[in-house]
Design a protein around this nucleic acid. Structure first.
Length: 956
RNA sequence: GCCGAAAUGGUGGAAUGGUAGACACGAGGGACUUAAAAUCCCUUGGGCAUAACGCCUGUGUGGGUUCGAGUCCCACUUUCGGUACCA
C-alpha cells in the first residue's frame, strides 16, 4: 500500500481538533515548558515557504518536550495593527479590520495545513479590545510611575509627589528628562498645570517635546528602528527631524538593567552584542568650562578625560540651548544662517553628504586645566540628544574633531609620546601621555599627567575633577526613550483625555477605550491625526463614558487623545497574555504567571534585535517591578531563524525576437535574461507548454533547446534548461514558493522535514524545491518497512536483535542530542542512516519500529500518529514516551582503529574492545605493513586515541 | 569607519583537535519495463594510475602551535548582517 499522505494528514488534523489534542492548562503535577514564535503580522500576500521555518522548528521542540513529559505551552496569535492595512484602507476605503481579518483567515488556513501543535484557544490579536485593554492598562501604570535610581526600580508617582512636597528635588536620584532643581515651597506654589508639566519630567510614560523622525508622506512619526538610511522602512519615504510633542516611554531609565540582564539569558552572542551597542553604555567625565568674561559655565561630557590639555576648541550642537546664549552680536547673523541651513537638511542628506560644516559663535570657554581661552563653535556633528550637547574638541585624538580642525584651520596639540598627527588623528587608547601640561608653559594648575598611560591619566583626571569640584564622573547611555505615539488610525487608542490642557487618565475600570469609527483614514484637513475624523471621541467625566464631540464643554466633557500607539505597543507583552488570554480582570492571573513564569524558548528573526526585543524586555522589567511578571527577563533562550531566500529561474530571450535559448546554448546569442515563474520549472527544466500559456506574449514562443534543436515544442529528449540565481523571495521575481502547493504535492510531513533538512535553522539559505524528493522518498521507504504491498502490517514481535538495538539506540542518542541543540538537519540525516541500516538487516521488529515512529513524531506528526495507531495504540503519539537511550547497546566487541604515521592515516586495524594500550601498540608494531612505513625512520613514540586512531610518531 | 557572523564538491550542507566531504539533491552508468513513470543497484572533490583499488593533492590566502589543524593562534582577502558623527 502506498503512503497516502493526503488522507493521513486530513484524518489527523481533524482528529486533533475533535480531541483537543493541543489544549493545555496549568498542571501543577507537570513541569512547564513555554515555547514561543514571534507572532506574525498578517500581510495580504499570505505565507511563503520561508515563513513557517521558525514555526516548524518551534513545533518540533514543543512536541519533543511534550514527549519528554513536560506540560508545553505553544501558542500563536497575530500582530494585527500595522501600516499596510491602513494604507490599503486609505486607497480603497476598505476598513483595516476587514482586511486584517481576511488576512488572518488566510494565514490560519495555511498554518493549519502544516500540522502545528498550537493551542488555538489561546490565540491573541493585538487589535481586539480584550487584548489591548492590557496594553492601555500598562501604559496608564507607566504614566503613574517613576524610576528610582537607588532602588533600581519603578515606583508609584505618589511617592515622588510626597517627596517633592517634603523636600523638593533635594536628594532625589531618579530617572528624568532633565535635571530640575526645585524647593518644596516652589513645588507647592505651582498650579495644577505646572505640576503636571513638572511630573512629565519623571513619569515612565510621559508627554515630551522631542526631536522625532517625522515622515511627512506617511503623516506620522517613526521610531528609530522604523527608519533606515533616512527613509521609512514601510514605503521608503523621506524622514526629517522635527521637534514635536509626543508620548514617550522612559526606556532609558532601564538602561543598566537592560544591559545587565543580557548576562543572564541564553541568546546568541551577536544579538546580545547588538543590544549592548544599542544601549551604548559609556563611562566618562562631565567637566565644567567657564564662559570667558562671565561667571557662567557649561558642562561637557568626555570619555577621554586624559586629553584635557589638548583641547583647542569647543563645539555645541545646533539644537543646544546654549547656542543663543553664547552667540555674540557680531556672529549672530552667521550663526542664525547656519542653524537655518542645518534645520533644512534631512537625515538622509546628512548621511549621504558628510561634509564638515560649522560656525564660530564669537565666545570663548576657559579650559579649567590650562586656563586657555578656547573658541566655541556650533556644528551638526555634535548631537543635542547625547551627553550635554556640548563637547571639548581634542583634534589630535578624535577623528571628527581632527576633520573639523583641519577644515577650519584650528590648532592640533598631540598628547601621546611619539604619535604622528600630521595626516590623521591618533584615536587609539594606547601610549604614554605627554604635553600635559606642555613643557615651557607656566602651569595653570598644579597637576600633571605626563608619563602616565592613557588609562592611568583618565583615572587621575577623574579624581582631580571630583576633588576640585570641576565636574563629576558620569555614565551615559546611547539608548533613547521610545517615542510612543503615532499619527495613525489603525493602532491602540490612548486611554487619555485632555482636561484643560492637562493629560488625564481615563479611570482604569473604564478600560478598554475602544478604537472609534471614522469615515476617512487620512489626517483631517486641519492636520490632525485620523482620529480627528471621529465624531464620537470625547470623555464625559461624570457619566464615565465616551460621548459625542459636540458635547465637549471643557467642564465635564473633554477631548480624547487623537494619537494612537505604535506597532511595538501590542507586541511588548503578548507572551504574558498567552498565559491567561481570556482573563478580563487582569493581564494575567497570579496563578498563571506563577506557573508559566517566562518564555523558555523564543524563536524569531534577528531583525527585531533593537526594536521589539528591547521594548519587550523593558516592558517586562516594568511589569516585574509592579509584581505582575515573575521573571525579570521575558525570553530565557532565543533562537534567530535565518531567512529563506528565493531561487529565481531565468529564460534567455534573443534580443528583439520571441525565441528563447537554453542555458548551455545562450553563449552564441545576444540574449536578455527574463525571470520565469519557478512554479513552471522543475529541476531547472522549463515546462515549455506551461511557459507558452503563462503569458499571452509567449503563446507563439520559439525555443532553442539544450541539444541545439529548435522548435516551438520539445521533441524527443530535447530539454530547455533555465539559469538560476539566489534572490530575495518576492512576487516580482516570480520565485515565491507557496507552502500550500508543497503540502498538496508532497504532504505536510515532507514539507516539515525538508524545511529542517535544508540546513541549520539559524542560517539563511535559499529555498530549492529540487531536493524535496529525498525527504519524500525517505517517508515512502519507511512506510514500506511497516506495510506490505497489500497494506498489511508486516512487523514481528520477536526480541530485537543486537544489530537492531544498536541501530535504534544510536538513533535515540543522536536525535535527542540534536533536538536539544536545535540541530534538526543532522537528526534527519540520522533517521535516513538508521533506516538504511534497518532495511539492510531486513528488520521487521515491532518494538524497534515503534520507537522509530515516536522519534519521528516531532518532525512528522501525521505520519507518526498513523503508524502509532496502526501499532494498536488508541492514544495520540503526542502522549507516548520518548525512548530512553541505553548505552549498553552501543558496545561493540571490537573496535576499528586507523593506524597513522606522523599524522598521516595509512591503514585500519581491528582490536578487541577491551584491548589496552600496550596490546594495541604491540599489535601495530608487529603488523607487517608497519615495517614498510618505518623504513628509514626510527620510532619516537606512539599516541593512542581511544576508539579512533593510533599515531606512530617517527623521526629520521 | 566600528561591531558581529561566515568562507568546505556542480548544489544544500556533515565533521567533541584524530580516516574531510556524513545525509540529500543533481549528474553519469546499469537492472526491471514495448516505453515512460515509479523502484532498485553502482560511480560521483581534483589529478595520476588501474598490473594488484595504490599514490599525490585538496576545507578563501599567508604564517604559526601540535605527533596530528576545516577546527586553535596571528596577519590578510572576500561575502553577508548590524550600526553609524554617541565625544
Amino acid at each position: 500500500m502506498e503512503y497516502n499522505f493526503r488522507d493521513i494528514e486530513k484524518k489527523w488534523q481533524q482528529r486533533w481538533v475533535e480531541q483537543n489534542t493541543y489544549k493545555v492548562s496549568e498542571n501543577q503535577d507537570k513541569k512547564k515548558f513555554y515555547v514561543l514564535n514571534m507572532f506574525p503580522y498578517p500581510s495580504g500576500a499570505g505565507l511563503h515557504v520561508g515563513h513557517p521555518l521558525g514555526y516548524i522548528a518551534t513545533d518540533i521542540y514543543a512536541r519533543y518536550k511534550r514527549l519528554q513529559g513536560f506540560n508545553v505551552l505553544n501558542p500563536m496569535g497575530y500582530d494585527a495593527y500595522g501600516l499596510p492595512a491602513e494604507q490599503y484602507a486609505i486607497q480603497t476605503g476598505q476598513h483595516p479590520e476587514v482586511t486584517t481579518n481576511q488576512n488572518i483567515s488566510r494565514y490560519r488556513e495555511q498554518l493549519d495545513k502544516i500540522g502545528f501543535c498550537f493551542d488555538w484557544d489561546r490565540e491573541v490579536r493585538t487589535c481586539k479590545p480584550g487584548y489591548y485593554h492590557w496594553t492601555q492598562w500598562a501604559f496608564q501604570h507607566m504614566f503613574n510611575s517613576y524610576y528610582d535610581n537607588r532602588q533600581q526600580k519603578a515606583l508609584p508617582i505618589e511617592q515622588l509627589i510626597s517627596q517633592l512636597e517634603a523636600n523638593g528635588t533635594e536628594g532625589l536620584d531618579v530617572a528624568q528628562s532633565e535635571e530640575l532643581t526645585l524647593t518644596a515651597a516652589e513645588w507647592k506654589a505651582m498650579d495644577e498645570k505646572q505640576k503636571s508639566d513638572t511630573l512629565m519630567n519623571y513619569r515612565l510614560a510621559f508627554l515630551g517635546e522631542t526631536m522625532v523622525n517625522w515622515c511627512p508622506k506617511l503623516g506620522t512619526v517613526l521610531a528609530n528602528d522604523e527608519v533606515v538610511d533616512g527613509v521609512s522602512v514601510r514605503g521608503g519615504y523621506p524622514v526629517v527631524q522635527q521637534r514635536m510633542r509626543q508620548w514617550c516611554l522612559r526606556v532609558s531609565a532601564y538602561s543598566q538593567r537592560l544591559l545587565d540582564g543580557l548576562d543572564t539569558i541564553e541568546w546568541s552572542e551577536s544579538i546580545k552584542e547588538t543590544q549592548r551597542n544599542w544601549i551604548g553604555r559609556s563611562e566618562g567625565t562631565e567637566v565644567q568650562f567657564q564662559l570667558a568674561g562671565t561667571d557662567e559655565s557649561f558642562t561637557i561630557f568626555t570619555t577621554r578625560a586624559d586629553t584635557m590639555f589638548g583641547v583647542t576648541f569647543m563645539v555645541l550642537a545646533p539644537e543646544s540651548e546654549l547656542v543663543a546664549k553664547v552667540t555674540t552680536a557680531d556672529q549672530k547673523a552667521e550663526v542664525d544662517a547656519y542653524l537655518e541651513q542645518v534645520k533644512k537638511r534631512t537625515e538622509r542628506e546628512r548621511m549621504i553628504d558628510k561634509k564638515v560644516t560649522g560656525v564660530f559663535t564669537g565666545s570663548y570657554a576657559i579650559n579649567p586645566f590650562t586656563g586657555e581661552k578656547n573658541p566655541i563653535w556650533v556644528s551638526d556633528y555634535v548631537l543635542a540628544g547625547y551627553g550635554t550637547g556640548a563637547i571639548m574638541a581634542v583634534p589630535a585624538h578624535d577623528s571628527r574633531d581632527y576633520a573639523f580642525a583641519k577644515h577650519f584651520n584650528l590648532p592640533v596639540i598631540p598628547l601621546i609620546e611619539g604619535c604622528d598627527v600630521s595626516e590623521e588623528s591618533y584615536d587609539a587608547k594606547e601610549g604614554i601621555v605627554c604635553n600635559s601640561p606642555r613643557p615651557g608653559v607656566t602651569p595653570y594648575i598644579d597637576f600633571s599627567l605626563n608619563g602616565l598611560t592613557i588609562k592611568e591619566a583618565i583615572a587621575a583626571t577623574k579624581v582631580y575633577v571630583k576633588e576640585h569640584n570641576l565636574g563629576r564622573v558620569k555614565v551615559n547611555y546611547r539608548l533613547r526613550d521610545a517615542i510612543f505615539s503615532r499619527q495613525r488610525y489603525w493602532g491602540e487608542p490612548f486611554p487619555v483625555y485632555y482636561k484643560n490642557g492637562i493629560p488625564t487618565m481615563i479611570p482604569e475600570e473604564c478600560l478598554p477605550i475602544e478604537l472609534p469609527e471614522v469615515d476617512k483614514f487620512l489626517p483631517t484637513e486641519t492636520g490632525e491625526p485620523p482620529l480627528g475624523n471621529a465624531t464620537c471621541w470625547a470623555w464625559d467625566e461624570q457619566k464615565k463614558q465616551i460621548v459625542d464631540n459636540k458635547l465637549i464643554d471643557n467642564k465635564t466633557v473633554f477631548p480624547i487623545e487623537l494619537f494612537t500607539m505604535p506597532g511595538f505597543a501590542g507586541s511588548s507583552a503578548y507572551y504574558l497574555r498567552y498565559m491567561d488570554p481570556h482573563n478580563d480582570k487582569a493581564l494575567v492571573s497570579k496563578e498563571a504567571a506563577a506557573y508559566w513564569q517566562n518564555v523558555d524558548l523564543y524563536v524569531g528573526g534577528s531583525e527585531h534585535a533593537t526594536g521589539h526585543l528591547i521594548y519587550s524586555r523593558f516592558w517586562n522589567k516594568f511589569l516585574f517591578d509592579m509584581g505582575i511578571s515573575i521573571k525579570e527577563e521575558p525570553f530565557q533562550k532565543l533562537i534567530n531563524q535565518g531567512m529563506i531566500q528565493g531561487r529565481s529561474n531565468f529564460v534567455y530571450r534573443i534580443k528583439d525576437t520571441n525565441t528563447f535559448v537554453s542555458l548551455g546554448q545562450k553563449g552564441q546569442y545576444d540574449v536578455t535574461p527574463i525571470h520565469v515563474d519557478v512554479n513552471i520549472v522543475s529541476n531547472d527544466r522549463l515546462d515549455v507548454n506551461a511557459f507558452k500559456a503563462w503569458r499571452p506574449e509567449y503563446n507563439d514562443a520559439q525555443f532553442i533547446f539544450e541539444d541545439g534543436s529548435k522548435g516551438d515544442a520539445a521533441v524527443e529528449g530535447a530539454e530547455y534548461i533555465c539559469g538560476w540565481a539566489i534572490e530575495k523571495m518576492s512576487k516580482s521575481m516570480f520565485n515565491v514558493v507557496n507552502p500550500d502547493m508543497i503540502v498538496e504535492k508532497f504532504g505536510a510531513d515532507t514539507l516539515r522535514m525538508y524545511e529542517m533538512f535544508l540546513g541549520p535553522v539559524e542560517q539563511s539559505k535559499p529555498w530549492d524545491t529540487n531536493g524535496i524528493d529525498g525527504c519524500h522518498r525517505f517517508l515512502k521507504k519507511l512506510w514500506g518497512m511497516f506495510f506490505d504491498r497489500e497494506g498489511n502490517l508486516q512487523l514481528t514481535d520477536a526480541e530485537p536483535s543486537k544489530d537492531e538495538l544498536r541501530s535504534i539506540h544510536k538513533l535515540i542518542k543522536k536525535v535527542t542530542d540534536d533536538i536539544e541543540n536545535f540541530s534538526f538537519n543532522t537528526s534527519i540525516a540520522a533517521f535516513m542512516i538508521c533506516l538504511n541500516e534497518l532495511s539492510q538487516i531486513k528488520s521487521k521488529n515491532r518494538s524497534v519500529m515503534e520507537q522509530f515512529a515516536i522519534l519521528m513524531a516531532p518532525f512528522t506528526p501525521h505520519f507518526s500518529e498513523e503508524l502509532y495507531e496502526t501499532l494498536g495504540h488508541n492514544t495520540s503519539v503526542c502522549d507516548a514516551q520518548w525512548p530512553v537511550f541505553n548505552e549498553e547497546y552501543l558496545k561493540e566487541d571490537s573496535v576499528k582503529m586507523m593506524i597513522s604515521f606522523n599524522g598521516k592515516a595509512r591503514f585500519p586495524m581491528e582490536f578487541p574492545a577491551d584491548a589496552d594500550n600496550a596490546t594495541i601498540e604491540k599489535a601495530v608494531m608487529e603488523n607487517p605493513q608497519t615495517a614498510k612505513y618505518m623504513e628509514g625512520w626510527t620510532l619516537n613514540k606512539v599516541i593512542i586515541v581511544p576508539k579512533k586512531i593510533v599515531n606512530v610518531v617517527l623521526k629520521k
